[in-house]
Design a protein around this nucleic acid. Structure first.
Lengths: 339, 339
DNA sequence: CTGAAAGCGCTAACAT
DNA sequence: ATGTTAGCGCTTTCAG
């Protein structure tokens, strides 16, 4: 009570020890919940801690224990709502295991991503989960492969890095088969360029499903974009609409943002969805159910993906030489009104 | 060349020193770019560093220098795209000043937020920027006020915490005056509940502007929601639409997500935007320009808000006893087709 | 220009 | 059950 004035000077474990009339070791034991301390002593220490306003210096503890209990999650674009649920999944597992999870916005820039890996190298974080494009990951794989990290959603199965994701080839096939079952034979694909592995996988799934149904793919119906934003989708739709009688009756866009842009572009060209052109997206982001018409799309088990990634990472931290396998989780086609 | 095999054992500064035939002090000097080292010695050290694959242990350095050069940004909801540009602004300033910025998703939960503040208390981060609701901040203000942090967008001017934001009262007034100028007199407000200070400020701005124009506010046209998501906006619109002849001709929603939901709800009720009901949102998030019709809304200078917040924080870190003032930045009404 | 040595604040043997 | 002590890996006087 008499010591209300907390000096702004840092109070250390030694100060607490002195105050409580015990050794620093005892204070440390109390702090860490070791059982071999007499209750009376424990109480004295607690009182001294409270009275002094002591706060443990985790930096010192971390240096000593050689771990930070910090996990990093690297996202390529913080503005993309797609990552939200994944991040929540990671966070919940991290928390349950006594770790903090902190987010890094890499901007899909290898240099920035490298700088975050430096946090691992400098022992300031214990591990990382990377949601970045496989290309970015690969640029770093060589020197980074010894570091404790796992890939999520975007990954190269051959990079030797543990990963979690879905079967993109199968998912794209499911979309095409769904569209075919609805009577479509003129199906376009709007893809995300070759930076993303998932793009190549979905393209292959699209092609193979078409082929399996005996439908020849029209090259004019395959558009590769270098962006995933609404505008890009809009422009692609305009391009497809301008085909006139040669235009497709269904469009599969590899992301919901693209698909929403597509619907806008179609509307701009005087075409109705789904009457004139059906549209399917990918990801099932929050707005997808709230655009007009609501978007048919492929849902990934985002939360589960994040949880699985976190669990993989923790396993790797516990046993650095454990074999950590790649994991594929099931997706789901969400049927709404756009197709 | 002969030493390609990097032992997985941690190599320390002492190892490098031995290898280079110098003292650890000299290695440290080279590492930190001190000038008082002979070029030949410097070269020897560099070679030893490269050959050994040495990586500085930042934990140790941080302990010694008593700083982490880590900044935290706390967001209430990682999934809300509203924060993206702000975060980028913070990040760029942090980077330019040699800091890492890491994101924390608090879920607007005071307990979780407190846990992140613990990172500050434990010296694992040097400072923080908090984008959380003022209510959450206040729950922590008492004990947290000694910590180096600033509030951004949501803040209590009286909490004694440095802040950056916009003039919400004025912005809401601008919206109402714009609507009045367009001939509207039946203007509804869809608000976000009382958890958010900006909600109260915008409500006051709405009321005052109406009053100044001699228009009596109809209580049935003021809806308080406890959520900001699309569904909530949709339900509120349905409620307003059900008023029949008593329904408003314009709706001001305090966030774009709400506004988009409102437009959907209106459409569901057979009402056209803007012909039957005009809609104005707030924030100018990315989708706002891509919904149908494009949304008229208030843009906040997000990037600038983030930069200003980061600069305030850095100033506070440099001089803990400096007076750091509150800062208000200008907003802008973006006129599109919804109103 | 370089080295020796003293810590930063903590944990974990190893005593007692 | 408690204390002593040796570091964790680094930076920084202080000497030389």
């Amino acid at each position: 009570m008499s010591d209300t004035v907390r000096s702004r000077e840092e109070v250390s474990i030694a100060d607490v020890a002195e105050r409580a009339g015990v050794s620093v070791a005892t204070v440390s034991r109390v702090l860490n919940g070791h059982t071999n301390v007499r209750e009376a002593t424990r109480e004295k220490v607690r009182a001294a801690v409270a009275a002094s306003g002591y706060r443990i210096n985790e930096l010192a503890r971390n240096l000593r224990t050689a771990e930070s209990r910090l996990l990093l999650t690297m996202v390529p674009d913080f503005g993309n709502p797609f990552y939200a649920a994944i991040v929540r999944g990671i966070d919940s597992v991290a928390r349950q295991n006594g770790y903090f999870m902190l987010l890094c916005d890499t901007g899909a820039d290898p240099l920035r991503e490298r700088s975050y890996f430096d946090l691992l190298r400098g022992r300031r974080a214990d591990g990382a989960i990377c949601l970045d494009p496989a290309a970015v990951q690969n640029a770093l794989a060589e020197e980074a492969s010894a570091l404790p990290w796992v890939a999520c959603c975007e990954f190269d199965p051959d990079a030797g890095v543990p990963y979690v994701g879905i079967d993109n080839h199968l998912a794209a096939g499911d979309v095409v088969r769904y569209l075919i079952a609805k009577g479509h034979r003129r199906i376009a694909l709007i893809n995300s360029g070759h930076g993303y592995l998932y793009g190549r996988q979905r393209q292959a799934g699209y092609r193979d499903a078409l082929e399996a149904a005996g439908i020849a793919a029209n090259p004019a119906w395959q558009i590769d974009l270098d962006s995933l934003d609404y505008d890009a989708g809009e422009r692609a739709a305009a391009q497809l609409a301008s085909l006139g009688r040669e235009r497709p009756t269904a469009i599969f866009a590899v992301s919901d943002t693209l698909a929403i842009g597509v619907m806008n572009g179609l509307r701009g060209a005087g075409l109705r969805v789904p009457e004139d052109v059906a549209v399917v997206g990918f990801d099932d982001i929050a707005v997808a159910a709230h655009v007009d018409p609501p978007l048919t799309t492929v849902a990934q088990p985002m939360q589960a993906l994040g949880e699985a990634a976190a669990n993989l990472l923790l396993k790797r931290l516990r046993d650095p030489r454990a074999h950590v396998p790649g994991v594929l989780l099931p997706h789901r086609l969400i049927q709404r009104r756009s197709a």
